[in-house]
């Protein structure tokens, strides 16, 4: 390989790296932008609880969906192997805020066709919110291995007109 070829390779390499690093900068900016503008679907920890008392004490002892003004708030228990409340019904176009925790092992709380995807960890309460723009049935899926009944740990949320 002569000197000239070597110089060509170095030039191409510089170009490739500038392109690559440039793309990475673009990605990071986009991520920061989506965080700032669509942050509601990012799970946030709101409090820590005693997992062994989730079923008997506090907000989660009474799992429910309630209407607060024009919005909804849901307190959801993800347990082996189901969700409580087992089915939720909300109106289209209203914001739903979910608080989710587990009384036993880790679970998932994923709502298909949305960005809601929570790692449910015993002892941690996660908050996410979403506004359903289309009516229909949305499957809620446990996507963290939780034991023999894991695959059947499926529920749904019904969005009405």
């Amino acid at each position: 390989m002569n000197h000239e070829e070597h110089a060509v390779i170095e030039r191409f390499e510089r170009g490739w790296l500038i392109f690559g690093v440039g793309m990475i900068v673009v990605f990071v900016v986009l991520i920061a932008y989506t965080m700032a503008n669509f942050g509601g679907s990012i799970p946030v920890g709101t409090e820590r609880v005693d997992a062994t008392k989730v079923r008997t004490e506090g907000q989660f002892a009474n799992p429910r969906l309630e209407q607060v003004g024009n919005e909804y708030v849901a307190y959801v228990q993800a347990f082996a192997f189901g969700y409580s409340p087992s089915e939720m019904r909300v109106k289209r176009g209203r914001k739903v805020t979910f608080y989710v925790t587990s009384p036993d092992v880790q679970h998932g709380f994923m709502i298909e066709r949305t960005n809601i995807n929570v790692q449910v960890i015993p002892g941690e309460v996660a908050r996410v919110s979403h506004t359903f723009k289309e009516a229909g049935e949305y499957t809620i899926i446990c996507n963290e291995y939780c034991g023999l009944g894991h695959a059947g740990m499926i529920s749904k949320i019904v969005v009405e007109e």
Binding site: G45, V118, I121
Partner: peptide
């Protein structure tokens, strides 16, 4: 990323 308990 999906874990509660670690700040965004």
């Amino acid at each position: 990323f999906a874990d509660p308990g670690i700040a965004p």
